[in-house]
Design a binder for these strands. Structure first.
Lengths: 191, 191
DNA sequence: AGGCACGGCTAATGCCATTAGCTTTTAAGC
DNA sequence: GCTTAAAAGCTAATGGCATTAGCCGTGCCT
């Protein structure tokens, strides 16, 4: 029963850091254990001392990204409510994507339990932002889903450069925010 | 100047067929040239006689999927206009995703010129569906982008099983349609 | 009859993830 | 200070996959 403490050196967190920087610099396709190890100044198999495999590394990265995003959005929404909160939420989300497009693309992977949990935190923040609207719980869930769909869809398409025409993306996003806010305000047929 | 006609056997289209069936059956992660070749009853390198490489196969698959989707949507929108057209468009899109979730996920890849072109056809269909609303061209572009963002976002999230709570997805999608339609009808601050 | 292009095959290369097993370092506890 | 065990690193080996090179049979066109 020795104390299981040991050398400092690398750590799972440090590996995730390196991997995130790699993705930021060279895109999601460049994410390879060999490349991460090289950046970390270590042989490839050494990474397995900190991370079970590539899939787990991806999952850890996703959790980190989602937490990061949740923190920013939490701050942005704080103190605002209703329309203002929605606007702040959506704006902050997009700022993140513009800032780290590759990172955001790296996110769009398989859904494992641990990342789902991080996502749930984000959903809670959104639910809180919607509390100002007069909504049933059920209705709020649907609203959050639509919010996610709109933001995520826009984010993915932008990160993929899927919007080709010259019109300004900022203007498009204003319209999207308008749709969400208006849709939330306008009564909707029962279910 | 020989006639470049030859044996029947495989063809690029046939390879794409096989690949699409593979993805439908086993998911996008199972898409490997080895697996496609095996299903086609051929050795792996033989595929290179029809397809430049895996990336090109993916691109061809994307074009096929987008065209498929465009055809369905074109039919669904035909004869309808304004709100009804939007509803039909969005409903048809989602039906496709529900029918072939893996195929849709396989789509979300890099944007090459050829797939972008297929996407442009789809955008044209959407623009036509919006013609009934009284809109500037510029405004219509923004509207189509929002439409894409909303549908695609929802589709991606659903295909990834990112909606965990028990509430019905159909109801959520109704709300999303409502948001889009209402947002298009409600005037929006100038740009 | 003959040639040639097409489409298929085998062999070979190189990258990558992952595993096994060995060595080194570190930090406790004495 | 010395021991020691676990953590953390390394090299070597395996197997899957994409991709390339080069060979062979087949059938159409002349």
């Amino acid at each position: 029963m020795r104390a299981p403490v040991a050398r400092a050196a690398l750590s799972a967190d440090a590996v995730v850091d390196v991997a995130l920087r790699l993705v930021d610099d060279e895109g999601p396709a460049a994410l390879t254990l060999a490349a991460v190890a090289s950046r970390a100044g270590v042989a490839t198999p050494s990474l397995y001392k900190h991370v079970r495999n590539l899939a787990e590394l991806r999952a850890l990265m996703s959790v980190r990204i989602i937490d990061d995003l949740a923190e920013r959005i939490g701050g942005a929404v704080l103190g605002r409510s209703a329309d203002e909160a929605i606007r702040a939420l959506m704006t902050t989300w997009r700022e993140y994507v513009v800032e780290h497009p590759h990172r955001y693309s790296a996110l769009v992977q398989t859904p494992e339990p641990t990342a789902a949990q991080a996502g749930a935190r984000l959903v809670d923040i959104m639910l809180a932002a919607l509390r100002a609207y007069d909504m049933q719980d059920t209705e709020a869930i649907h609203a959050v889903r639509c919010l996610r769909a709109a933001m995520h869809g826009f984010a993915v398409l932008q990160a993929q450069n899927a919007f080709q025409r010259p019109e300004k993306l900022d203007d498009t996003y204003d319209l999207l925010i308008h749709m969400v806010v208006t849709g939330l305000r306008t009564p909707h047929r029962r279910t």
